[in-house]
């Protein structure tokens, strides 16, 4: 059953893109600049897992937790040492975007110096594939889909039911009004970077288990996550996640007709199409939000 297999593949790739997009869009919505270095946070998490588990031999769960914490800290550092100090000098959002691309290139090369340019793989959890409705899926891929869906749900509960989540939505709506209402916008920006980068860390771990690691894979992942976010709604986290799943479906059903090397071309085509025709995305339910 080719359709079933395509749907399963779309779900797997969609959840990975969704994990990239949700952290990215969380950071975008509260800070209003494009944090491209989010892509390298994902790769850092992968290499940290490799370091802790394969090289140092720490237990798997502990390695995962350490990787997520380190990724979170690096995200926090990126905001405080680079973006916040640029913002203090009244840097525009374009300058912050350029700075984030600089951070991306810096860390990618740092990883290459430390771990080498070659492809690394973990080869963990090599269990037998299972068959669902004629589609073949590995247990790891099932875990990826389940973990990401649980995370999306947790993120939704966090933003809709906690005070910090509500403050994040308020800052995303209107930054100036939020600070007039007594919300410390810098604190909220810090939270968004810590949580967003932790999500990147989880994405990095799952991607490392599923695919191979290479120092420059972050750029491509970021472009896919960004495309997913643009399709859905860049400033609205649930929209960004749904957009990423849509991108997964478009890619997989696209390469049913086209050679599979066109996978990236499909994503770019959609990105241009949406930026030209519907830059706010199709799942933008936050009507009337100040831009």
């Amino acid at each position: 059953m080719i359709i079933a297999q395509l749907i399963v593949n779309s779900l797997i790739i969609g959840s990975i893109y969704g994990l990239v997009a949700c952290g990215f869009s969380l950071i975008y919505s509260t800070n209003r600049f494009i944090h491209f270095a989010h892509g390298v946070s994902i790769v850092i998490a992968g290499y940290m897992l490799l370091l802790f588990h394969s090289t140092l031999g720490l237990p798997f769960i502990l390695s995962c937790i350490l990787s997520i914490i380190i990724t979170s800290l690096i995200g926090w550092g990126m905001y405080n040492f680079i973006f916040a100090s640029l913002q203090k000098r009244n840097a525009s959002n374009v300058i912050l975007l350029i700075a984030s691309i600089g951070i991306l290139i810096f860390f990618q090369n740092l990883i290459q110096i430390i771990f080498g340019a070659g492809i690394k793989s973990m080869n963990l959890f090599q269990a037998k594939s299972i068959e669902i409705f004629g589609a073949i899926i590995t247990p790891l891929q099932v875990v990826i889909i389940l973990v990401s869906i649980c995370l999306f749900f947790a993120l939704y509960l966090f933003t809709s039911h906690t005070k910090i989540g509500r403050d994040m939505r308020a800052v995303a709506d209107d930054r100036q009004l939020a600070s007039i209402m007594g919300i410390n916008t810098k604190k909220i920006a810090n939270y968004s970077f810590i949580i967003g980068s932790a999500l990147a860390g989880i994405a990095g771990i799952l991607i490392t288990l599923e695919q191979n690691l290479s120092p420059f894979m972050g750029t491509n992942l970021m472009i896919k996550g960004f495309t997913g976010a643009v399709i859905g709604s860049i400033s609205f986290v649930p929209g960004a996640i749904l957009g990423s799943f849509l991108l997964g479906f478009f890619e997989n059903f696209g390469i049913w007709f086209l050679p599979s090397v066109y996978r990236d071309a499909i994503a770019f085509f959609l990105l241009f199409l949406f930026l030209l025709l519907k830059p706010k995305g199709i799942f933008n339910w936050n009507k009337g939000v100040k831009k």
């Binding site: 005070k163 509500r166 403050d167 939505r169 308020a170 995303a172 709506d173 209107d174 009004l177 939020a178 209402m181 007594g182 919300i183 609205f236 339910w285 936050n286 009507k287 009337g288 939000v289 100040k290």
Partner: peptide
């Protein structure tokens, strides 16, 4: 001058933080 994507009750409660 309100938070458009928050509910009206949330908008009010933000004042009582």
């Amino acid at each position: 001058a309100n938070f458009n994507s928050l509910t009206i009750e949330e908008n009010l409660l933000i004042g009582a933080d």
